[in-house]
Simulated assay, not measured.
Amino acid sequence: MKTDHERAIEIFHHELTNHPNFKQVEFKKVTGLPFVYLTAEEDISQKDIEVTLKVSAARAMRGKRLTLAMSYVRNDQALYVYRVRFLVPQRKMFCCGNLCDDCIRFTQP
C-alpha cells in the first residue's frame, strides 16, 4: 500500500509527462533532494511553466494533507530546473498541556 506522499509524486509525474507544454520531463534526486528537469516548447514562458507546475501539484495533492515546496534553480535555453518537494505535516508526539485542538490525547491509536 502506497502512502499519500508516494501517490502524490506518481500523480505529479504523470501530469507533467503528459502535459503538452513539455517535450521532456525528467525527475532526478541529487544529494537526496528531488529536482525536475523540464524541456519546454519554444513559445512557453517561465511564468507559464510555474503555473503548470503549481496546477499539476495541486491536482496531485488533492485530498491529501501535503504542501508544496517549489523553487526555481536555473535554466539553459528551453531546459528549466526546479526543486519540487511535497512536504508531509508533522504530527505531535506528546501533550504539551496547552489544550491544542490536535492534541495527541484526542487521537485513536
Results as ranks from 00 to 15, higher is better:
Met93Val: 13
Asp101Val: 08
Asn75Ser: 15
Ala8Leu: 07
Phe27Val: 06
Ala78Leu: 15
Leu53Arg: 03
Arg91Leu: 09
Gln46Thr: 02
Val36Tyr: 06
Glu42Ser: 10
Phe94Arg: 14
Pro89Lys: 11
Asn21Val: 08
Arg62Gly: 00
Glu10Thr: 10
Lys2Glu: 13
Val81Ser: 01
Met1Arg: 11
Lys92Met: 00
Glu10Phe: 05
Leu99Asp: 12
Glu42Leu: 12
Asp4Gly: 11
Ile11Cys: 07
Asp101Ser: 11
Phe86Gln: 04
Pro109Thr: 06
Thr17Asn: 06
Pro20Gly: 10
Lys2Trp: 05
Gly97Thr: 05
Ser71Asn: 13
Glu6Phe: 07
Phe12Met: 02
Asp76Ser: 03
Leu16Lys: 08
Gly32Ile: 11
Val51His: 13
Ile104Asn: 08
Thr39Leu: 15
Phe35Lys: 09
His5Val: 09
Phe12Thr: 03
Pro109Asp: 13
Glu15Arg: 07
Glu50Ala: 03
Glu10Val: 06
Gln77Asp: 15
Leu68Phe: 02
Met1Gly: 14
Met61Gly: 04
Ile11Lys: 09
Asp48Leu: 02
Leu53Thr: 04
Cys103Asp: 05
Met70Tyr: 03
Asp4Pro: 08
Ile49Glu: 01
Thr67Gly: 09
Leu33Tyr: 10
Ala40Gln: 14
Ser71Asp: 07
Leu38Gly: 00
Ile49Arg: 00
Arg65Leu: 09
Phe86Ile: 04
Lys54Met: 02
His19Arg: 08
Lys64Trp: 00
Phe86Val: 01
Gln108Thr: 02
Thr31Gly: 09
Phe106His: 09
Leu68Gln: 04
Thr39Gln: 15
Tyr72Thr: 14
Ile44Asn: 03
Pro20Met: 10
Ile44Val: 14
Cys95Met: 12
Glu10Asn: 11
Phe27Pro: 01
Thr3Ile: 05
Lys23Thr: 14
Phe12Val: 03
Asp4Thr: 10
Glu42Pro: 08
Arg7Tyr: 01
Thr3His: 06
Arg83Ala: 04
Leu99Ser: 13
Gln24Pro: 01
Leu33Ala: 12
Ser71His: 05
Leu87Gly: 03
Phe106Ala: 11
Ala58Met: 03
Met1Trp: 06
Ala57His: 11
Glu41Tyr: 01
His5Phe: 05
Val88Asn: 05
Met61Asp: 07
Arg7Gln: 07
Gln24Phe: 02
Tyr80Trp: 12
Ala58Tyr: 00
His14Ile: 04
His19Lys: 09
Leu53Asn: 02
Glu15Gly: 06
Ile49Ala: 02
Ala78Cys: 14
Lys28Pro: 00
Glu41Ile: 06
Glu10Leu: 09
Gly97Met: 04
Phe22Ala: 03
Met93Trp: 04
Arg7Val: 01
Pro89Thr: 03
Thr39Met: 14
Ser71Ile: 07
Gln77Val: 10
Met1Ser: 15
Asp4Phe: 05
Val36Trp: 02
Val30Met: 14
Ala69Gln: 02
Gln90Met: 11
Arg85Glu: 13
Ile49Cys: 01
Met1His: 11
Ile44Arg: 09
Val25Glu: 06
Glu15Thr: 08
